[in-house]
Design a protein around this nucleic acid. Structure first.
Length: 568
RNA sequence: GGCCCCAUCGUCUAGUCUGGUUAGGACGUCAGGUUCUCAUCCUGAAAACCGGGGUUCGAAUCCCCGUGGGGUCACCA
């Protein structure tokens, strides 16, 4: 089997592969969803097929246009180009005429197949209220049985159809009484016993199809050959297969990929951000009091409700400022979070690919191949190398990948990346540093920032007000007062050396300090550490050359003078 | 609870299909070393086959039973 597929029907071997990613637009793209999309895209590329993007917005209450746009943007940032789908970011379009790609605009298609099923008595109206359903579930539970909805034997079809003309109702699918086998490319054949399958709802009271129905119809109409999705959908697969058969559709190959969890084994969800802030707020009585008593009445009431009830979540625009105020780092959950933190898209893609898939190849020095790009993935991806076990998201490893990638860039390349990120997430930084300065700083930052969001950290001394440098007593004692000669004695002399320098570039400063030390038979540390205390207040800074060059001669001398005055 | 999926270092995993390895790599951790500080970088170390039966000359690998973890049981997707 040259394509690395375990179990594939003869049909799908010969027909072009069509995969699809079908998010529902209820928020940003989740990192797990991104991996699903990645596998969809990679598999389609590998088999020279098509990758379809479809927006599942049948839930009118929760879907939003803004969320859909955000997801498209997230996918584009990751470089996950879709062939068929909404036109955006230069991707998408409807070359095969299978659109539209928003389910809310596909009502006519669904209606057609609803009619077909009703006519064949494979679907029927049901009038149970939510309360009645709940009661049925409750009594089933009391008998320690699982509630399985089935049409009763004495259901009167004629009168039900008549009644449906005037009364609110849902449409349910008459599930055939037979076992269903799901052919899965990663899990193998999975058999679901007939008595587990219920007559599930396929059309809601508002006339919209349920997820199960829309998915099945759309996949058929869009020619989808491989359904790649998270393992949480495995239990939906038999429903879909039964529906497909009832409708006379082709049954695609499924590939249910393992789930991604938090390090503690809990589900990785947007709720984690809320949890992190809640924990911090509980710790900080001051902030809690302040928030409880500030803002509009509505805000305060909402905050009180949130504080009391763990199941209530604060909206993002309220949550984020509180997180900022408390200095809590929110866990990255959505693609946007990783982007904001300053991870590189190609790194995220690389790491995501490794979460559940691996090339099984060695590098030249005999290690497992772990670092690869999209081209590699697109030419090597297969389901038989997709694992079956859920994995925990290891941020340290992602960071390490990102760090290595940042370090491997040449400074110009890094600055381009850095500026692009800052433009979106840290405009102040961009305003404070011109491009030549960033280029000077680049090597120092590259070795100290695993993610772009940390690029400010090693540069804190640069952004500080010259007159606001606070001296660390221990550093002053050790590097200025102690020794023979003491730093206090060395500093004025090296200061004069700086003043006389015409070229105050990083290299010139580096060489200047070094040769001055040699000329005076002093170790580098003898000069370097007092200078560090002068410019940072502490004994820690990036290499002096780039630090002083970025600071500029005037500010450097000023800070040295200030320390000297402080010592006097 | 029913049904379904899964099980190798702390984590991601290679090895399992086609039984024979000192069970390999990466991240993290720890210990050394280089360096003007921090960081980088280099070297090294500790660290795993869930348990029990079976098959076999031989089991991480094949089979069975346990145990554990997870998913799912909506007019959400």
């Amino acid at each position: 089997d040259t394509h690395g597929m375990g179990t594939v029907s003869a049909m799908s071997e010969s027909n072009p592969v069509i995969t699809r990613f079908a998010p529902s637009p209820t928020g940003h793209l989740h990192i797990g969803g991104a991996r699903t999309a990645l596998f969809c895209a990679a598999f389609a590329r590998r088999r020279a097929g098509r990758f379809v993007l479809r927006i599942e917005d049948t839930d009118q209450k929760r879907s939003s246009e803004a969320a859909a746009a955000g997801i498209l943007d997230d996918l584009a940032w990751l470089g996950l180009a879709w062939d068929d789908g909404p036109s955006a970011h230069g991707f998408g379009g409807d070359d095969r005429g299978v659109g539209p790609f928003y389910q809310s605009k596909r009502r006519a298609h669904y209606d057609r197949f609803f009619d077909q099923l009703i006519a064949a008595d494979l679907a029927y109206p049901a009038f149970d209220t939510a309360d009645e359903l709940a009661a049925m579930r409750k009594s089933a539970e009391a008998e320690k049985k699982t509630f399985i909805y089935r049409r009763s034997p004495d259901y009167d079809r004629e009168s039900a159809i008549k009644r449906a003309e005037s009364e609110p109702h849902v449409l349910r699918f008459r599930t055939p009484d037979e076992d269903v086998t799901v052919v899965d490319a990663v899990l193998g054949d999975v058999v679901f016993p007939a008595d587990q399958l219920d007559d599930f709802v396929i059309r809601k009271q508002d006339g919209f199809p349920t997820y199960h129905f829309a998915v099945v119809v759309d996949d058929e109409l869009m020619g989808v050959t491989h359904v790649i999705r998270g393992q949480e959908h495995l239990n939906n697969a038999p429903r879909h297969v039964a529906l497909m058969k009832a409708l006379g559709f082709n049954v695609p190959v499924f590939a249910h990929i393992p789930l991604i969890f938090n390090p503690d084994g809990s589900k990785m969800s947007k709720r984690d951000k809320d949890k992190a802030v809640r924990a911090a707020v509980k710790q900080n009585v001051g902030v809690r009091e302040a928030l409880a008593n500030a803002g509009a009445d509505d805000d305060r009431a909402r905050f009180a409700r949130w504080l009391k009830d763990k199941t209530v979540q604060l909206p993002q625009d309220t949550l984020l400022p509180i997180a900022d105020q408390l200095g809590v780092a929110l866990p990255e959950i959505d693609v946007e979070d990783f982007r904001k933190a300053g991870y590189l898209p190609e790194v995220v893609v690389n790491y995501l690919a490794l979460l559940g898939w691996n090339p099984g190849e060695k590098t030249d020095d005999g290690k497992d191949l772990e670092r690869f790009d999209r081209d590699y993935l697109d030419s090597h991806f297969s389901f038989d190398r997709v694992g079956k076990t859920a994995s925990k998201f290891d941020r340290d490893k992602l960071r390490a990948f990102n760090f290595d990638t940042i370090q491997a860039m040449d400074p110009a390349e890094f600055v381009l990346e850095w500026r692009g990120w800052a433009e979106r997430y840290d405009p102040t930084l961009l305003a404070a540093l011109d491009e030549p300065t960033m280029l000077t700083l680049a090597p120092a930052v590259q070795q100290r920032a695993a993610v772009l969001g940390e690029s400010r950290l090693p540069l804190a001394f640069l952004f500080a007000d010259d007159a606001a440098i606070e001296y660390d007593d221990k550093a002053v004692a050790k590097h200025l007062r102690k020794g023979e000669p003491s730093g206090a004695e060395v500093l004025p002399r090296i200061r004069d050396e700086f003043e006389s320098m015409a070229d105050f570039s990083a290299d010139a400063i580096e060489i200047g300090i070094k040769s001055w030390c040699e000329a005076n038979s002093l170790g580098m540390g003898k000069a370097a550490q007092p200078i560090r205390v002068a410019i940072t207040g502490s004994a820690v800074s990036p290499p002096l050359g780039v630090s002083l060059a970025a600071l500029g001669k005037d500010r450097t001398l000023w800070r040295i003078d200030r320390l000297l005055a402080h010592l006097a």
